[in-house]
Design a binder for these strands. Structure first.
Lengths: 269, 269
DNA sequence: CCTCAGAGGAGAACACTGTTCTCCGAACGC
DNA sequence: GCGTTCGGAGAACAGTGTTCTCCTCTGAGG
């Protein structure tokens, strides 16, 4: 990644006058296509085209290379997707469990987990399909379970809480991004009558209108909650979900009977 | 589905002696390919081949029909997948909210939701990709939110709890089935050395061996919990996850301060 | 300076996929 | 009886992941 060679953006066009040059210059210009570079190019394509537009041919084109060249560094597309996913954990620090601060640590874990999935387009979809622990990620799973166990949770609870929290993070981001993409699609076709409201909030307003149009007698609860679902920021909603889980976990602590240990977040009571 | 015509299984073979018959007989023999029949055939193919083996051509073959005929009744493959998903809700009863029994009702909701996803192969994957409420499912979403709101939960909590529980159900079943499929794959290639342990538990034993092989000093928590994750039945683990969420929700009830309302399930304390 | 082995990318090919186009043939109303 | 309409047939298009063979270009040895 931090090679001395300057980053050659997407394979220099053959530049006819360069054809006669000594071959040596050309080789040093096209850094020799390591596995890292393939993964990086794939992430670039992913961010630009989305998961549905991510094909091996697109990745090859991004590198100015033919498809077959990719298969020398990557076993299959599934393999590539797995590499892309594990790459997100590269610089991640492993939290050292502190029984006194387990709730803050869990909140941090959830927050950084969500940010990781948001760092590249459609990453939540990839995560859902290839999540179950690959060997490289075992240290992260270990550290996470360590947080739960040293907090004093019973083993069975800790084991299932791991699944629960990971699942919630993935699912939340998946819904969050799918909503955004759907909004982008809708904004694309409604280009004409979306003249007065900006692109992003256009969908929100449209959703609110839709819920408002439902017969209130048949859908009183949807009617009451739709405003919240549309209005509240995703960060806020995510925080609430995490808090529900944390409170549930806290109720399993040995001293839970002696009074709630949960230092209730301001504003959600 | 319950047409008077006997269910013709996968398009009767052309039966040479029937070819000479008046065309009228042939038409009544091949029930005219309604949208229902396409969905049903798709579910058959899904159960047999899995989601990756579900192609429009396979569905057409299942019906003894060409691909283009399908597109007269279904807009696209995505449309078909959505129809397959909403079909699972066909006979589902809408629970009437009972504030006294909200916890049992939520448990029931989770249980039937999981069973629904387990009723057809790879349904959890389809659910994750096309879940956000289609119009036909709004009554179910409404009833679900009704359970939470009439229980006395604050609106913001109820709104996010809906997402949380749905996400957990989908994610749990997804992991559950992916594990099973991975075990089936592994059993396929390990056909030789899997001579003494039966197919299904083969993977479990293998996983346990794998976790046992990890350096215990580096992965103490995984070491301690792996047994539970492998040993415990999926039903048990699912129940625990639901219980964690329920306890978290209960802590938001107005009378939660006066003592825990959670009638603790026997065995998980 | 020349030759020779070897690695790595090029290009074509295969078996698929979802979707759409045109066309035919059979059933119905008049 | 004729004409119209509609649903299915079949071929086609553009794209996919993957693999095969071939060729070129590089670096080492003489």
């Amino acid at each position: 990644m931090n090679d001395a060679a300057a980053h050659t953006p997407a394979s220099p066009p053959p530049t006819p006058w360069e054809r006669g040059r000594p071959a040596r210059a050309r080789v040093s210009a096209r850094t020799p296509l390591s596995r890292e570079r393939v993964v990086e190019a794939a992430l670039t394509v992913l961010d630009r085209q989305g998961l549905d537009g991510l094909s091996m041919r697109q990745v090859a084109a991004e590198l100015g290379v033919t498809v077959s060249a990719l298969y020398a560094h990557v076993r299959s597309k599934d393999d590539l997707l797995e590499l892309m996913y594990t790459r997100l954990f590269d610089g991640a620090a492993l939290p050292e469990p502190d029984p006194e601060r387990w709730q803050e640590q869990l909140r941090d874990y959830a927050r950084t987990g969500r940010e990781r999935l948001l760092s590249h387009r459609d990453m939540a979809r990839i995560s859902m399909a290839y999540a179950p622990f690959t060997a490289e990620l075992l240290p992260h799973v270990e550290a996470f379970l360590g947080l739960l166990r040293t907090a004093g949770l019973p083993d069975r609870i800790a084991a299932e809480a791991g699944d629960l929290i990971s699942t919630y993070i993935d699912g939340f981001v998946l819904g969050e991004t799918m909503w955004r993409e759907r909004a982008a699609e809708a904004a694309g076709e409604d280009a004409e009558d979306a003249s007065d409201h900006p692109d992003v909030n256009g969908m929100a307003a449209e959703m609110q209108d839709y819920f408002a149009s439902l017969p209130e007698s048949d859908f009183p609860h949807l009617h009451a909650l739709a405003g919240l679902m549309v209005t509240d920021s995703a960060d806020e909603r995510f925080g609430i979900g995490v808090e529900i889980i944390l409170r549930g976990l806290a109720s399993y602590l040995p001293d839970a009977a002696a009074g709630r240990t949960v230092p209730s977040e301001p504003g959600h009571d």
